[in-house]
Amino acid sequence: MTSTTDTIARLRAEIRRLECSRAMLGDQRISSGCEALDALFPGGGVRRGSLVEWLRGGVGSGAATLALHYARQACRQGTSLVVVDRLRQVYPPALAGWGIDLAQVILVHPRDVREELWAWDQSLRCAAVGAVWGEIERIDGRSFRRLQLAVEDSGGVGLLLRPLRARIEPTWADVRLLVQPCGGQQVRRLSVHLLSTRGSAARGTVSLELDEWSGRLQKARDLHETRTGNLAASLARTTADRRATGTYGSSVDPV
């Protein structure tokens, strides 16, 4: 039994090595500072030279906030954070509030979707950029692949904020996560679902809490096992399944 799992692990590592064009980058991980969240990523934390998709499961969900935790860590060594903001809705003082040094931020306001993708591509390609953070509403497969190759080259991190409808689209991101707000709690609570990862079938869910005053991120203390279990089960169903039955997971906002 152990030999089988060992073989699978070895093969998985082999596949990842083949898929990653820059083997010399190694396996550097960025931690958010919250172990529970990092544990959701295969290998623990966001890999340098990868893209991560954060799907928003509703308005004011907290997806951008979680992504920002990784952006902050990725720019620790004085590299720049590029914020691509086509809709002009990012509020810079809030970035500063989450501990980002605004002197490291480059705010880009592209006019249209084409310029937006171009700005993403250029920024991800630059080795002096630690992370690129921003909303991408729609992206076709080819552009997505180009972004992935760009980020692998530079060793930065691309944190893509996506709408929920992007869930059915193919992805070139290393990890795709869904962030959902959870109501009815004493503190602000979010649940993060791992929807897909490249080169592994790992799935998982974690509940996180954000402290009302300090903004500290930590694992939720009392887990509603049944609820999250149901969620994971409903999310694990394939799109074809859902189409066939014509139902959506009750806890996922239909879009």
């Binding site: 990012v90 809030a94 500063a96």
Partner: peptide, 14 residues
């Protein structure tokens, strides 16, 4: 000084 992390929204409508 920067505002507290939870006090200002990351996305602002204008």
């Amino acid at each position: 000084a920067a505002p507290g992390p939870m006090f200002r929204p990351l996305r602002l409508f204008d």
